[in-house]
Amino acid sequence: MKKVTILLTLLLAFSFGFSQQAFKSGEKLVYSASYNMSGLMTELAQVSMEVNRINTSKSSLLHLKCKASTYSKWDNFFRIRDLYETYWNAKTFRPLLHKRSIDEGGHTKQVKYVYNRPETVKSTVVRKHMTTNKNLSIGLETFDVISTFYQIRNMDIANASPGVKKTFSILFDEEEKPVTVTYIGKETIRVAGFGKKECHKLYVPVEGGKFSGYIWLTADANKIPVQFKFKIPIGSGQLRLKSAQGLAN
C-alpha cells in the first residue's frame, strides 16, 4: 500500500506552469480503487478528495483532505483507513501544515510536517511505540503529497507538447524524491457520470521504471484527475472517478 501511495503521489506531481484556479472550496471527488487479481480488476477501496475553506483567528485557509477506506466486504481481511490532510494559505496557495494518519491492516503511522519556510520543515513521525522529531532541509519547491496533487490541478498543460518532461520534488517519508514526468498527449476516455471526456495523459516512471503509472486529467479548466493506472512489481491497479461535486468551472 505504501508503494502504491508513493506511486500515486508521484503520478500527481507534475507541472508546466500555473493556470486558472481549477478547484474551489466545496469540491469533492470520489474514486474507486481496484487491484488486478489474476487478470480481473477487483474493487478494494474508496478514495475521496475534498477541498474546504476554514478560518483561523487571522487567516483563511484551504483544508485539502484525502481519505481512503476499504469497502466493508474487505474490512475483515485487510482494513484500510488512511487520512491525508494539508492546510494551505488561501492567498499564496502554499502549504502550512501537512498531516498523514494511516491505518493499514493494523499498521499505524502518523506524520506531521509543519512548513517553516523558506527552507525547513519540522517533521514529527509517530509509530506505535516511538515519536521522532526532525528539522528537514528541503527545497523551496518541494511539497507534500496532497499539495502536489492540488498544485497539478492549477498547472497549465493545455498547450504542452507530447514528450515534454518535467522533474519535480515531493516530500514523502521525510525524504525529497525527485521524479521526471512525461506528457504523453491527449486521449479520450469514458468517465462515469461524464461520458466520453478528452483528457491529458501523463506518464510517471519511478525508480528507473520499477514502478510506473499513468494519469488522465480532463482537458478542461477543472483538470479533474479522472483515472490513474499503476504497475508495481507485485501487480497493477487503477483508480477511477465515481463522482465529482462542487466543481469550480
Binding site: 476554514i54 487567516s59 502550512l96 509543519v114
Partner: peptide
C-alpha cells in the same frame, strides 16, 4: 490542526509579508 495553525499565526503573518 486548527489549534496548531492558531499557534502558527505569527509565523503565517511573517510568511505572508515575505
Amino acid at each position: 490542526a486548527i489549534e496548531e495553525l492558531e499557534e502558527l499565526e505569527n509565523e503565517l503573518d511573517e510568511l505572508e509579508s515575505i
